[in-house]
Write a protein that binds this DNA or RNA. Structure first.
Lengths: 137, 137
DNA sequence: TCTATTGTCTCCAGTCACTGGAGAGTCAAG
DNA sequence: CTTGACTCTCCAGTGACTGGAGACAATAGA
């Protein structure tokens, strides 16, 4: 399987597959005579695994860790659960942040007439609040 | 006001304030004899405005646009509302994505015993799904 | 007045996870 | 034999900072 076939099967851009090989996340198992990367089903499964994990927001380093566990026949599910639970907490934090942003912005938009006059509650609302809504990045 | 005072007042790191000056987003209105950036209340208000807008997820370029409107006495609130509404839609999309991630991951974690055995529904769940949950980045 | 500390300056490099593009080589079809 | 699609490597750029080096400025205490 050449790289574009693997890329198709995994649902990832060719560039990304090559990148994952470069950083040693999912290596191509072999090269053809002409120097083309050659993939097999097992490496495609790993690519799919990484794609899914990335979609869940796991970082490349976390993917590496999960991939080790994925390949380790003697892994304990506790290790995986620990990583996944941490990620779930991050998701929940992000959800709360997003909710308060949503509410506040929706409120400002709602208060804005959207006409041609210079008076604008959104601008005022962005400029005037106190500086305690931190810890967002 | 030196840069650290402005940084404090605005709730932004010094490095970031300097960065915003470098990219011409919020310039320091003057320099002292010794070459120190000197800020006044008006520029601090702009820094606060940018911090708030960034917290809402507006990009630097959007901040630039909003800041122009913020400074423009003849702006129409329609312009601002357009930008803000676009951003609100993005937030809502992100919320929906996050919700489905949350549900799916929570489901996997729930199904995982978290013991010392190698059987793990999270690993299986990450590896096995179809490739149609795209468009997340 | 000297010194030590703290603040600030510029400039360069690194982060993360890719993405785009140049220029060259490989492969299969017609 | 040529064309076009595919692939290779390498380099640079993205966004929004962040960290650090080395040098200069300002201030407080002895």
């Amino acid at each position: 399987m050449n790289i574009s076939a693997a890329s198709n099967a995994a649902g990832l851009p060719v560039k990304t597959v090559r990148y994952y090989a470069d950083i040693g996340l999912v290596a191509a198992p072999a090269r053809s005579e002409g120097g083309y990367r050659t993939y097999d089903d097992s490496s495609v499964r790993k690519l799919v695994f990484v794609r899914r994990a990335r979609e869940f927001g796991f970082s490349i380093e976390e993917c590496r860790e999960l991939l080790d566990l994925y390949e380790d026949q003697h892994r304990s599910s506790a290790d995986v659960k620990r990583i996944a639970s941490k990620r779930l907490e991050e998701i929940e934090t992000k959800q709360r942040e997003l909710q308060s942003l949503h509410d506040e912005l929706a409120h400002l938009i709602d208060a804005c007439k959207g006409d041609d006059r210079p008076d604008c509650p959104i601008i005022d609302g962005l400029g005037n609040r106190r500086a305690d809504a931190r810890g967002l990045r």
